[in-house]
Design a binder for these strands. Structure first.
Lengths: 111, 111
DNA sequence: ATCGTATATCGCAATTTTACGATTAAAATA
DNA sequence: TATTTTAATCGTAAAATTGCGATATACGAT
């Protein structure tokens, strides 16, 4: 750990947690899958596809946006949401490495 | 999506969300790293290493255990926590695939 | 049998999350 | 200009999360 108690947690730990938190609800997974599936910006059809109220979806979109993994740009009366390529890559790198570390370490687990 | 509104979310979406939720706090990331780093069961030293009260850490351990990614077995007066190899692998598979899908799709993003 | 230690659980408070309907703002259309 | 449409925000309620100290439990050691 090499961390003083006072320092709380390091940036990497916080970032992994933050990105994980963005994915910590099935609706947000579904939104990301929709955005990936269509491979282009979709807008309010997210609302049609998911079993949640428009205001709730707007909140989930806001949560995803806060983490950086999606971006949204206003296009007239609609808003066009896309995956944010840089952050998707950051997420992929960071979570793949983390998961790999866990997998590797379990080979010498005691229980 | 191919999902009726009434069906809410599918099992895979729920499982990704559940595992992500387990990782959605820096303390829980730190705990997983500790368990991986030591490559064997550690017990209450988690409490010594982290800047949180014993009861709080016990709660975080419970959350991790609920997701399945760690297991704990009582060993006399102590409890020995380990990464759960099967679930770590499940997590690795599931999250790697999900991240990859996102990455691949961004190559034809419109914004 | 008693004491000390390790860990889980309880009770509580503060904060955050989730969800919804209602409202607002802004743009497109009639 | 008036109306409709899209999406964000507001207000609110219920539930979950986070954190802590205090307590309980259970085991090992004396």
């Amino acid at each position: 750990m090499a961390l003083n108690k006072a320092e709380l947690f390091d940036d990497k730990q916080k970032r992994i947690a933050e990105l994980s938190k963005a994915l910590a609800h099935p609706a947000r997974i579904a939104i990301l899958q929709l955005l990936a599936e269509r491979a282009n910006c979709i807008c309010g059809d997210i609302t049609d596809e998911l079993p949640l109220a428009q205001s709730t979806i707007s909140q989930h979109l806001k949560a995803l946006k806060k983490s950086g993994i999606i971006k949204g740009e206003v296009d007239g009366v609609r808003t066009c949401y896309c995956l944010n390529e840089e952050v998707v890559e950051e997420f992929n790198d960071i979570i793949t490495a983390f998961a790999q570390d866990l997998v590797i370490s379990t080979t010498q687990n005691c229980c």
